[in-house]
């Protein structure tokens, strides 16, 4: 068992460029004597996720990232549009921060609270640096100087039907309260290409029946693996925005600030769409 694991790790190491490996090993983390940080992140085990991210980033979606160098060091909130039925956009953003940012940065995404009750995902995502999406966790990691990825649209955004592509749904307000409380810069991120990876129809009657914003149905025969189309991803990192104010303000006050971020992302999406010549390359 140990031998197998050893060989796997050696094979994984061989897939990365030596420069990347060296930088990855030099990443500052708060690890204990067993190699885990307090959220269960383990650098060696996270390499498997990095390999997966490298495949999607370099080979599959051929991610083109713009402005990633401008992402400030230290604590930062990456706020992005969410789309494409399955969260490959999260993997692509994490890949961009890992492979296009110098030094590489491990993005910690706030995952659905359901995840800890799903076998294997429950601990694998934790080993790879992903954390259960509670405000307390986010504040703790921001104080540790981490980069946190938030999709304020949540499941509303990712489950949009194809007809509403690149139209963002409502943003949650939580991220802004966290940014204000911890005085964290917000980097707006626009992802182009994820909307076309898994075009879905909206089953309106079902959505109404279940009281959901949309009930996406994929035109793919059942039991086939849900693999996305190899669209080309373009990720635009905007200039960091710094907001001031009381994190305990009324919802209306917070919503005003959130709107600034949302509009910024929407205009970055527009620019990205205009620059794009083709969906697949």
């Amino acid at each position: 068992m140990g031998l197998l694991k050893d060989r796997l790790h050696r094979w994984v190491d061989a897939q990365f460029s030596p420069e990347f490996l060296e930088k990855f090993r030099a990443l500052p983390t708060h690890q204990n004597e067993y190699g885990y940080d307090s959220f269960g992140f383990h650098r060696e085990e996270a390499k498997i996720a990095a390999l997966l991210a490298q495949f999607f980033h370099r080979d599959y979606f051929r991610v083109e990232s713009h402005g990633v160098a401008e992402v400030p060091a230290g604590r930062v909130l990456l706020i992005a549009n969410h789309s494409g039925q399955l969260p490959y956009d999260g993997i692509a953003i994490a890949g961009a921060m890992l492979f296009d940012h110098d030094p590489p940065r491990v993005v910690r995404a706030m995952v659905e609270k359901l995840i800890p009750s799903i076998p294997f995902l429950s601990y694998l995502l934790a080993r790879w640096g992903q954390i259960t999406g509670t405000p307390e966790n986010c504040i703790r990691l921001l104080h540790d100087g981490e980069a946190i990825l938030v999709f304020p649209e949540g499941s509303r955004g990712i489950s949009k039907p194809f007809t509403r592509r690149y139209q963002m749904t409502d943003f949650g307000l939580g991220f802004m309260r966290l940014a204000l409380e911890t005085k964290t810069p917000i980097v707006p991120v626009a992802v182009i290409g994820a909307e076309e990876q898994l075009p879905a129809f909206n089953m309106k009657p079902l959505a109404r029946l279940l009281d959901l914003p949309a009930f996406p149905v994929l035109p793919i025969p059942p039991f086939l693996p849900l693999f996305p189309f190899p669209t080309k991803y373009r990720i635009y990192f905007g200039e960091p925005l710094q907001f001031e104010g009381d994190s305990d303000d009324e919802d209306e006050e917070i919503a005003e600030k959130v709107k600034v971020v949302r509009n910024r992302i929407q205009s970055m999406i527009q620019v990205g769409l205009e620059e794009r010549k083709h969906i697949f390359w």
Binding site: S38, F39, K113, L114, P116, S117, I131, T132, T134, P135, E136, N137, R140
Partner: peptide, 9 residues
Amino acid sequence: RADNPQFLT
């Protein structure tokens, strides 16, 4: 609990 924050105060 599944939805516990990592560290409870």
